[in-house]
């Protein structure tokens, strides 16, 4: 549980954790698996039967090892709070997660860097999901409005036979700063994955996202989706890839970039590679202004253009 010497730090972190949409009470609930990281320290930790957590402090960060045993279904989502309250510095978070066979878990991760002016957060998450198991991972970021936060997040997931994996990355409530997201999924037989990134960038924010599906097992399937709303002078480069390496594997990649502002620079590159003739891959991409029919539908109900735009964007990024 929470270490008392970190009470004040936790209190400060909790304020921003809630702003990012997190429920602080869950971090203190004994029935909920939780890990609270501030800077390079683990300031709170809780686990339940069937879940093993090990952690160590490393230079500028922490290393966490989390294992869920076979045949365990975690009732409450695992809460992970990662924060950095100083304006400058570097934080490295390495997380290795292993889910056994026939198990089920859900992660809610909130990363809060509310005061960052010259701050870099590097995260590498390696995930292994056993046969017939499922993992849902939701990562929500909350950054400073200064634009001085740099985030480099790498998610590598390996799915065994019939495993299921959902991973969503959302940074829509605050400025981005500089963001690099790399999601990489290897799928075994009959495994399925859904990976999604949603980002709302402003001013001179810079975004680079790469999502890759490696459909290695027969009948594996996956969807990789990115939604970016770029405004002002922000820029974005999105690459969605799918590799159809096995018979009857199915993949779909999708990128929607909505732009508002004359100085926005955005681009998207869909990449589809088929190694097996029975694989089936599709892609969908769009870059442009808000869909005029959606806009005018809302305006025909009396909403102003700005209000209608905001409503459409908020809905898409929800």
């Amino acid at each position: 549980m929470l270490e008392t010497r970190y009470d004040k730090e936790f209190e400060a972190l909790a304020k921003y954790y809630e702003k990012s949409g997190g429920d602080v009470s869950k971090l203190l609930d004994k029935r909920v698996v939780s890990i609270i990281v501030s800077g390079n320290q683990i300031i709170g930790r809780n686990t339940v039967p069937g879940v093993k957590i090990e952690s160590e402090e490393i230079e500028n960060g922490v290393k966490i090892y989390l294992e869920i045993e076979d045949n365990v279904s975690i009732e409450n989502p695992i809460h992970l709070c990662t924060g950095y309250l100083k304006p400058e510095g570097v934080q490295v978070v390495l997380i290795d997660t292993k889910i056994g066979k026939n198990s089920k878990a859900e992660f809610l991760s909130h990363c809060v860097f509310p005061r960052g002016k010259k701050f870099t957060h590097r995260m590498i998450s390696n995930i292994e999901i056993g046969e017939n198991s499922s993992l849902s991972y939701e990562d929500v970021h909350f950054h400073s409005e200064d634009g001085g936060v740099t985030v480099e997040a790498i998610y590598n997931a390996r799915l065994s036979k019939n495993a299921k994996y959902d991973n969503t990355f959302h940074l829509t409530k605050t400025r981005v700063g500089k963001l690099k997201v790399n999601m990489n999924v290897d799928l075994g037989e009959y495994a399925s994955a859904y990976i999604e990134s949603k980002v709302y960038e402003k001013k001179d924010d810079v975004v680079e996202i790469i999502e890759t599906l490696n459909l290695n097992g027969q009948h594996s399937s996956g969807i990789a989706k990115t939604v970016v709303f770029s405004t002002d002078e922000s820029s974005a480069k999105i690459i969605n890839k799918a590799y159809g390496n096995a018979p009857y594997s199915k993949g779909h990649i999708e990128c929607n970039e909505i732009v508002k502002g004359e100085n926005v620079r955005v681009g998207t590159i869909p990449e589809l590679y088929v190694k097996d003739e029975k694989a089936e891959l599709t892609h969908e991409a769009s870059i442009g202004r808000i869909n005029s029919k959606q806009l005018e539908t809302l305006m025909a109900k009396g909403l102003g253009e700005e209000e209608a735009t905001e409503l459409i964007i908020r809905g898409m990024l929800k």
Binding site: K301, L303, L311, G315, K318
Partner: peptide, 15 residues
């Protein structure tokens, strides 16, 4: 038109 993330309840009361 269709709207992602907008519930029917929200849509009905717009405007």
């Amino acid at each position: 038109a269709r709207f992602e993330g907008l519930t029917v309840k929200e849509y009905l009361t717009l405007g």
